[in-house]
Computed example of a mutant assay.
Amino acid sequence: MIRGVRGATTIAVDEQELVWEATAQLVQEMVKANNIEIEHIASVTVSTTPDITSAFPAKAVRTLEGWQYVPIMCTHEMNVAGALPLCIRVLMLVNTDVKQADVQHIYLNDAVSLRPDLVR
């Protein structure tokens, strides 16, 4: 069965290294919290708010050891007034037998405000 694992984080300013570091950290924490084997990842979609233009966050994921064959795509979020700025979101589709209620979604930095009901 495929389950979605969600995560989000924020950066202080739009700088290439910060985008890559924050994205890699988020993805690694998502995998660790859910005991995910990279081979079981079907795909990853990474989105950013429109104020992030310095780097493709997917590059940070593709360069992690063992991730070179995981399909990864980047996109921008809708530009909605009042949205959390400088935010990177990840949706990871994973083959797992874990119940949907037991999936641990990861929210870091200011992104904890997006889904406080899911922050553990």
Rank of each mutant, 00 (worst) to 15 (best):
G4F: 13
G7L: 11
A8S: 13
A8R: 07
T9G: 06
T10A: 04
I11S: 09
I11C: 11
E17A: 13
L18R: 15
V19R: 02
W20C: 03
W20P: 08
T23H: 05
V27Q: 11
E29C: 11
E29Y: 03
V31N: 02
N34R: 11
N35R: 15
N35W: 09
I36P: 05
I38S: 14
I38M: 07
E39M: 03
E39Q: 09
H40T: 06
S43C: 04
S43P: 10
S47A: 13
T49P: 12
I52C: 02
S54N: 02
A55I: 01
A58W: 03
A58N: 14
A58P: 07
A58C: 08
A60E: 01
R62F: 05
G66E: 01
V70K: 01
V70N: 09
V70R: 01
P71R: 00
C74E: 14
M78K: 14
G82C: 05
L84H: 03
L84R: 14
P85M: 12
L86P: 02
L86V: 01
I88C: 02
L91M: 06
M92W: 07
M92Q: 13
V94M: 04
V94T: 08
V94P: 01
V103K: 06
L108M: 06
N109L: 12
D110Y: 06
D110H: 14
S113R: 15
S113Y: 10
R115H: 14
R115E: 15
P116E: 11
L118E: 14
V119I: 12
R120C: 10
